[in-house]
Design a binder for these strands. Structure first.
Lengths: 195, 195, 195, 195
DNA sequence: CATGAATGAGACTTCATTCAT
DNA sequence: CATGAATGAAGTCTCATTCAT
């Protein structure tokens, strides 16, 4: 009959996302996360192995959600390759509109965590990439997308660009309004800059 | 006996670039940098204010060089907008081909340092961005580039994409060969993926 | 439903003996003892004041049993001084044959607990020593034992030797088989090593 | 031209011996050792890997010294088996007379450290035991010592007894004066208690 | 009596930085 | 200028103990 049933882990995760977003993973102190989550410092270790495990679980959650959504898009036979492509871009944006702090953590710490403990990094990231690849492949096969491009490179190109822009939006939303970013990204990737 | 004179600062900088590339800024120890540079740990503080100052100077040097090169390109009236655009892409690539470790530091730590002490961050980065903007503006004015895009967004789009790809190349050069990356980037940005 | 009644304290004590034997007092965690005893961690504090109290009660039980047995031996007028001496040695061995883990705790932790909280240490230890002293005194008075020796020293000599050997037996029973140890101890103490 | 050359490590070791003797290894805090040694807490880690390494080095030093002395005794062809035996007992006593605190650490912590990290435990202990064995073997071969005893058991018997007595002496030197202990030990081991 | 989630004091250890030489 | 031993603040994590249920 625990009153807070299932809430402490979430509280900690949310506090961590907020603090990681504000000061970065390395400057975020466990004691501060605990304070923000309204729990004792030691309690964090009831839910997480160590500090890095918090970050790992943040990414696991993000990528799990993104992956599941992308799967729906990929398997939706009513959508054209370009529809799917647009939906894929929207997907990422939508999730981060919900939680701008998550965007910050996502863009700033993924490199760190992925290099630091690649073996523990969420499997959903890899699955997501593969599904994204499938969508692009389908576009090429259906002659909607050019076949002049390497899929690996294209994939990283797109996500690198998005990541960078989300980061700037999170810091300075006025110069980089989200809808404009979204439109611009879709436009460039489709048509390029050539007039 | 003046052979090494004036080299210590450079030695430290090079050692730092190497180590930051390998393990990241936060896990790089001053004592290790000193060892790699062949100087005493204390000597680092003769040339740099503190650990962050090393990173700051690395970025200052990079962006200074890039900026000066971009200025030449921008002011070269023999080049068409697309020539200038290509040259700008090449510029970044060329510098990192020289020093792959620099690429790693560049892509992994710029966010950190830029948010951590924005007031100290190199002025050349801003100058570089402005010059890049000028090149794009010129392209738009000369009706070479589309005017459907926001310049700020385009700029971050391009650099985000490049940064991400350089990072992947540094980790896994076989899957992401540099020349292919370069060609693909130029192609997408110009023409997009639509067939 | 009174089947287990009164057993929890014993369960905890047995679990503690096992764990203390395996990893030592300081590395034994209350939570692990609880798990091994099949009770909740908090329940341990219903039966014991604190962690040290568990150890105290283990020693209390051991020494109480040993003391009572020794009293019987001491007061058995049918036994010669050497019979009593042998019985005293056997007594200790017999108790530890029953429970090797107890031997480990006994030999490893007695020093610690005796120094840490001497005021709480079991009274039966002191009583045991006094009874042992009586047996030796009787042997001297009856001219069975030499009177060249200090009783205090002899007492510690014997128990130190036994403790050390029990410890080695517990770790490596093949090199130190219990019966051989027992015989050897009796022999040395009686006759010494001189041929 | 360091003033304190080579002294800090010794200061720390001596402070650690003192504190380990007083409160035991587990209750001894690094910060307290540092304070007693007159160094900063962090400085301890310039000389020792971690807390356990301090204990390891204490034992390494003790056993190294004992072993070297025992070697001299063993190889001294002027000594009879009993002379050698007596010298061996004296050896241990002499070293601990110099430093009673060392005796405490020796008797209280050897079990702990030997079980905790046996792979790191000093090699000199093993060498010492082997040399001690040789002396006993020689005594048996020369028909000075009885051949009714197992060497392994005898060896542990002797050292267990000595260790226990040293411990009591360290706690309560009046009841257990060192010379008396020494004499008694030699007597019992030679002749036993039988009159 | 029993539980076990929660606590929080406290320990070890790291490492950027200093400063006497 | 150069050194590198020394510093000590600060951070992560552990675990005996408590207490609301």
């Amino acid at each position: 009959m625990r009153v807070k049933e299932g809430n402490k882990e979430k509280d900690i995760l949310e506090a961590a996302i907020k603090l990681f977003a504000e000061v970065g993973y390395h400057k975020a102190k466990i004691s501060k996360i605990a304070e923000m989550a309204g729990v004792a410092a030691g309690s964090i270790y009831l839910y997480f192995e160590d500090k890095e495990d918090i970050l790992l679980k943040i990414f696991d959650e993000i990528w799990h959600r993104i992956y599941l959504e992308l799967l729906k898009i990929k398997n939706n036979s009513n959508l054209s390759p370009f529809d799917k492509f647009d939906a894929m871009i929207d997907l990422i944006f939508d999730i981060y509109i919900e939680n701008p702090n998550l965007a910050m953590v996502f863009v700033n710490e993924q490199n760190h965590i992925q290099r630091s403990t690649p073996e523990k990094f969420t499997v959903f990231y890899e699955k997501f990439l593969l599904s994204g690849e499938d969508i692009i492949k389908e576009g090429i096969e259906k002659h909607a997308f050019t076949n002049n491009l390497d899929i690996n490179i294209l994939r990283q190109f797109i996500f690198g660009a998005i990541r960078s822009l989300l980061q700037h939006w999170a810091i300075d939303p006025k110069t980089y309004p989200l809808n404009k970013i979204r439109q611009n990204i879709k436009f460039i990737i489709k048509y390029g800059i050539e007039k």
